[in-house]
């Protein structure tokens, strides 16, 4: 599974052991509410992707170099068999969820969304008041790089 994940998101290669466990836990959690049939199909697909290349290329998927892995997954992604395409879609979605679901990964790509919105961006989010300000409170100081201000 990890060799598949690294082929889908190369950045996953930088994960440490704890990071991998976290990614796998997120995937497991996402599958928890899915029908057992779907989980079985995904496991089968992972097994087929790992062992299938042994017959044709003489190597398991996880033993191949990244270029060959990419080639194999591209073939599956554009397979003439809709079930295979669908299976790969599901697998890819789970890997992306496990990886981009991690807060450190979101930060590393520069994702900055914050419930504090404009105020948080400008770094002047003040105390922990729960009051929602009226719209005039949201008017940024024009001397700062506010919305449309070229930040």
């Amino acid at each position: 599974m990890r060799s598949l994940a690294v082929t889908i998101v190369p950045g996953a290669a930088r994960l440490d052991a704890e990071g991998w466990l976290d990614v796998e836990a997120r995937i497991e959690a996402a599958l928890r509410t899915r029908p057992p049939r779907l989980k079985r199909q995904l496991r089968l697909l992972v097994l087929a992707l790992e062992w299938g290349p042994l017959l044709r290329h003489g190597r398991r998927f996880s033993r191949m170099d990244s270029a060959r892995r990419t080639e194999i997954l591209e073939g599956v992604q554009r397979s003439a068999t809709p079930l295979l395409r669908r299976g790969f879609w599901g697998l890819r979605t789970l890997v992306l969820l496990g990886y981009y679901g991690r807060p450190d990964v979101r930060r590393s790509v520069g994702y900055r969304a914050d419930p504090g919105g404009w105020a948080a961006l400008m770094g002047d989010l003040t105390d922990g008041s729960d009051d929602v300000p009226d719209e005039s409170d949201d008017v940024p100081d024009e001397s700062n790089d506010g919305p449309g201000g070229g930040t």
């Binding site: 998101v9 997954l73 979605t93 981009y100 790509v109 520069g110």
Partner: peptide, 25 residues
């Protein structure tokens, strides 16, 4: 959208897909 939804919404996988995510800002 958000990182996971954005990644899921890009066609394909691998380095090209990831390079768009790394350009998020």
């Amino acid at each position: 959208y958000f990182p996971f939804v954005t990644a899921k919404s890009l066609i394909g996988f691998g380095a090209t897909n990831e390079s768009f995510l790394r350009a998020f800002p």
